[in-house]
C-alpha cells in the first residue's frame, strides 16, 4: 500500500487525545457552523471564525499578512508551533484553514483526520471551558501565491487548465446553487466552468470523515480523472472551502506539484458578466 506524499500532515484523533497537554501543539477549531465551538470543543482548542477572523470584514478577501500575524498572535500561536486543525463537515473549513496557514507559510500544520465528527462519534470529551491564551508573537512568511488561483487566471485557463469542480452533482449540473443543507443563495447563474470535471469532495472521504487511502485517491484523481504531476490543476466549489479539502488531497496527500485553490469559486465565477458557463440541458436552476 502506498503512503501519502506527506503523511505527516494528518494526525489521528488518538494522537490529538494524547497531546492535549502538549504546549507545543496548538489545536484550532474552524467550523462552518460557527456556534459549534461554543457548544463544546476539544480541551485547550482555540477557535478561528472563518468569516469574522479569517476574512476581511468589508473587502472580499482573507486577511493580509499583517492581519494574519495579529490574528495568530492573539490566539497564542507562534510561528514555530505545531497547529492541528479540526472542524465540522468532514473538515471542510479546517481544510480551508490549513490552506490559509500554508498560504502564509506556516510549516507545522496538520489536519485531525476525520475532524470534529469523528471525535464526537467516538464519544470523546468536549468542553465549554475557554482555553487560557497567552498572546504570542507570530511572524508570517510572504504569501505563497502558488496555491491560490484568482479570477483572471481561472478565466484564462478555461478549456486549457484542468479544473476540478468539487461541488455536489446537483450544484454542478445547475439544479442547485448551494449545498442541500444551506438555503439557496449566492451566484447569479447556476452551472459550472466549461470543461471542469465534477469530482465531489466527498469522493475523497470515508464515511467517518477520514481521508481515503493513497491508493484509493490515486485511482480516483489519477486514474479516473486523469490528473497528473505534469499539468497544473485548479480546484473550486462555491466559496472555496470544499475545494480546499480537495486541494489538500491533491497537493498534500497525492503530492501533485501545482494545485491552486480558486477561493472566489462559484459565487464569483457564476456572477461574472459575459463568461462562459455550462449547465445540463433542462436544468434552469433555482
Amino acid at each position: 500500500m502506498t503512503d501519502y506524499a506527506k503523511p505527516e500532515v494528518l494526525v489521528s484523533t488518538d494522537w490529538v487525545a494524547e497531546h492535549l497537554g502538549d504546549r507545543s501543539v496548538r489545536v484550532v477549531e474552524v467550523d462552518e457552523d460557527t456556534t459549534a465551538y461554543q457548544k463544546g470543543h476539544i480541551l485547550g482548542a482555540v477557535s478561528l471564525h472563518w468569516r469574522e477572523e479569517i476574512q476581511e470584514p468589508v473587502r472580499r478577501d482573507f486577511v493580509d499578512r499583517a492581519g494574519f500575524e495579529r490574528l495568530l498572535g492573539s490566539k497564542g500561536i507562534a510561528d514555530g508551533d505545531t497547529v492541528v486543525l479540526y472542524g465540522g463537515n468532514n473538515n471542510w473549513f479546517a481544510a480551508y484553514g490549513y490552506w490559509f496557514f500554508r498560504y502564509y507559510g506556516h510549516r507545522e500544520v496538520r489536519l485531525m483526520n476525520g475532524g470534529r465528527k469523528k471525535w464526537e462519534l467516538e464519544g470523546r470529551e468536549l468542553t465549554t471551558d475557554a482555553p487560557k491564551v497567552t498572546p504570542a508573537t507570530y511572524r508570517a512568511k510572504d504569501p505563497d501565491t502558488s496555491v491560490r488561483a484568482l479570477r483572471d487566471e481561472v478565466l484564462a485557463g478555461v478549456g486549457k487548465t484542468p479544473m476540478v469542480d468539487v461541488r455536489s452533482p446537483e450544484e454542478f449540473s445547475g439544479k442547485l446553487a448551494a449545498p442541500a443543507h444551506l438555503p439557496q443563495e449566492q451566484a447569479q447563474r447556476n452551472g459550472h466552468i466549461p470543461g471542469a470535471k465534477n469530482v465531489p469532495w466527498s469522493r475523497a472521504a470515508n464515511e467517518d470523515g477520514t481521508f481515503k487511502s493513497a491508493d484509493e485517491l490515486q485511482a480516483i484523481y489519477g486514474g479516473e480523472v486523469g490528473l497528473s504531476a505534469t499539468k497544473p490543476v485548479i480546484t473550486y466549489c462555491r466559496i472555496g472551502e470544499r475545494s480546499s479539502h480537495t486541494w489538500f488531497v491533491l497537493h498534500e496527500l497525492l503530492g501533485l506539484p501545482s494545485v491552486k485553490n480558486y477561493d472566489g469559486s462559484w459565487t464569483e465565477y457564476g456572477s461574472l458578466v459575459g463568461v462562459p458557463i455550462e449547465r445540463e440541458k433542462g436544468d434552469a436552476g433555482s
Partner: peptide, 17 residues
C-alpha cells in the same frame, strides 16, 4: 447525531449535526 443526505446514486450531498 450526524445525518447525511445521499443522492440517487449514493453520492454525498450534505451532512448535518
Amino acid at each position: 447525531a450526524y445525518v447525511r443526505l445521499l443522492g440517487p446514486s449514493g453520492e454525498f450531498t450534505a451532512e448535518l449535526r
